[in-house]
């Protein structure tokens, strides 16, 4: 009895410990992802309030760790403080993954996230020291989105639900032709990221609004296509359906925000300073854009990491059912 109980404990305890550690790690990754979203918002506030160069030096601000938080300095230095906090979280996350994670690619993604956040900090510094060169500013904006995606992926793949689903490695990935859901999601990821680049170039006055509008139409068509395909073929795949609907909902909000941002920027063209409604709409437009990219990436992971056999079987069965 004792022996069997011992065996049970010795067998279950590490699993229980691992489960506890994973849950904590997942929560920590979630906190890092949420903090990164806050960092994106803080960065958007800097640009929208035209405060990018309110602190002329870097890495210190006016030669200090804590300058007087007045006017644009509040936004710029606040952005730096949140960035430092996210950098710290990423260091802890990468080290934590390195010590407890058994999947090599997840460990590597942790280190890649850390390298990205360091590079992002350096880009931010170069942006300030070289007076906002467009290429660097746009690069800084786009790398932020990529980093956000990385930590969202880490939050997803460290979740207990994701790890349980991935236990059976015998499943194959679905591939249902040229316009498969998998390919569509890759296309929508690329389209959203390109659209974010175009948004950044518009914000930093490199290009006009037309490329961004073309990008919006492209993303809309692709997302609608995914929604139709998921609704018609995979409506009983709850997670895929949920993330598709989330992406679709975010797209609807984003289109409204985009139109509202364009309108308010037009009507406040001669305003002497950035007005709060304009700032709020622009920042919200950027944040929802980031959430769209993250949702699209998560959806892609849901589809690629899915029980492929099940989807493939259903896909084959569909014509017979009809």
């Amino acid at each position: 009895m004792h022996l069997s109980l011992k065996r049970l404990i010795s067998r279950t305890k590490p699993d229980e410990e691992l489960a506890v550690v994973n849950r904590s790690l997942h929560r920590f990754a979630l906190v890092t992802a949420f903090s990164t979203l806050c960092l994106l918002v803080a960065g958007a506030l800097v640009t929208s309030n035209e405060a990018g160069l309110s602190v002329p030096d870097w890495p210190l601000s006016y030669g200090q760790w804590m300058p007087p938080m007045i006017g644009g300095i509040f936004y710029e230095h606040g952005h730096r403080m949140i960035a430092s906090f996210v950098g710290l979280l990423t260091i802890v996350l990468a080290c934590w993954l390195a010590s407890v994670e058994h999947r090599k690619w997840v460990k590597k993604l942790g280190w890649l996230s850390l390298a990205t956040v360091i590079l992002q900090g350096i880009l931010g510094g170069i942006t300030v020291l070289f007076l906002l060169p467009t290429v660097v500013s746009v690069g800084h904006a786009c790398l932020a989105q990529l980093f956000f995606c990385m930590v969202c992926i880490l939050a997803l793949v460290t979740s207990p639900g994701w790890q349980n689903r991935n236990e059976d490695r015998s499943y194959t990935l679905p591939n249902e032709g040229v316009f498969s859901l998998r390919r569509l999601t890759i296309a929508v990821n690329l389209a959203i990221f390109l659209q974010l680049i175009l948004g950044a170039t518009l914000r930093h006055k490199a290009f006009g609004v037309v490329p961004h509008l073309v990008g919006a139409v492209t993303v809309t068509l692709l997302v609608v296509w995914i929604v139709i395909q998921v609704a018609s073929q995979y409506s009983d795949e709850q997670e895929i359906l949920s993330w598709t609907l989330i992406l679709n909902g975010l797209l609807a909000v984003q289109l409204l925000l985009g139109a509202a941002t364009y309108w308010i920027r037009h009507v406040t063209e001669f305003a002497p300073q950035p007005l709060p409604p304009m700032v709020a709409l622009t920042v919200a437009h950027l944040a929802v854009g980031a959430l769209m990219l993250a949702s699209s990436v998560v959806l892609t992971f849901q589809i690629y990491g899915r029980d492929g056999r099940g989807i493939a079987i259903r896909a084959r069965e569909l014509p017979q059912m009809s």
Partner: peptide
């Protein structure tokens, strides 16, 4: 312009 006080131009 002054980036601390964005109305200054």
């Amino acid at each position: 312009k002054c980036n601390i006080h964005p109305w200054m131009r």
